[in-house]
Design a protein around this nucleic acid. Structure first.
Lengths: 147, 147
DNA sequence: TATTGTTATACTCTATAACTATA
DNA sequence: TATAGTTATAGAGTATAACAATA
């Protein structure tokens, strides 16, 4: 779809680009945090999602990857004593859970994500409230998918 | 660094988490956009950076990866006719540049990043101005690195 | 038949280290 | 000596397809 065919202001276009650049910055910071804790970024995302026993299928959905990937990542985390598995009631299902070590690691990662967030260090309370309000708008559930 | 040892309000902590989640959402959208255009995410980042002839070293710095990675990504993009190389004045340097096809693809990716941004579809102009102001604060150049 | 998880495969990204060629 | 880029290597993430166990 070429330029100028929709009611898209140059100003809005610029804001979208700025938002994308901001998220790229966050991504790099997150990769550095994961690395600091001896994890790859996907492993760190995995650990952050595991706040309760979770079926591998659900993890794949949350992480937006194929289920076959979950097997490998879980195996590497299990090797390091961070994750344990139990059978579900439906015996096809494997429920993954963090060990004590894994929970401690998750806390540490969460804390560092907060500590290194510019939201903590560069905004005052008023600005943080404004940011939350905008994030609420940005990520509210879809109303009209493709209008 | 354990909980409670710094003047960190629970409220600020929550905002940091929200911001992180927002950037995870942006990352997934960007990966989908790249895929729509037959690119991996690193390839798409590469193409977006190539708005002028750029030394491979500079690309590695911008993309925060080792220079050895740039060789491979550039080779795959060149195979597809998206990128061309020329020698710099300093004959150690290779300057990468997008072809016409590559420039068209970059435009298309940029446009889709904008089109699919919630900043375009969910915010009005006042809100977008407020967002830009907050992003300016969040990502202003560092003043005190580690205070 | 459908679903959950595993395995095999192929490709990409990644860093490290050793290399070539320039400076 | 230092820098730009390449190559070889090894490990990790990724999707696809075929499979076993269970529903």
């Amino acid at each position: 779809m070429p330029f100028g065919s929709r009611p898209t202001s140059a100003e809005a276009y610029t804001v979208a680009q700025r938002l994308h650049e901001a998220s790229e910055g966050s991504r790099l910071t997150f990769e550095a945090i994961a690395s600091d804790h001896g994890l790859t970024a996907p492993q760190a995302r995995f650990v952050l999602r595991l706040f309760e026993p979770t079926a591998m299928k659900d993890l794949a959905d949350h992480l937006a990857c194929d289920k076959s990937n979950v097997t490998g990542i879980a195996a590497r985390l299990a090797e390091r004593g961070l994750v344990e598995a139990a059978r579900g009631l439906d015996r096809r299902v494997k429920l993954l859970e963090l060990t004590k070590t894994g929970r401690d690691l998750r806390e540490a990662v969460q804390q560092e994500v907060a500590d290194r967030s510019p939201a903590m260090t560069r905004l005052n309370e008023t600005e943080r409230r404004a940011l939350v309000r905008l994030l609420d708008k940005l990520h509210a559930p879809d109303l009209s998918p493709e209008s």
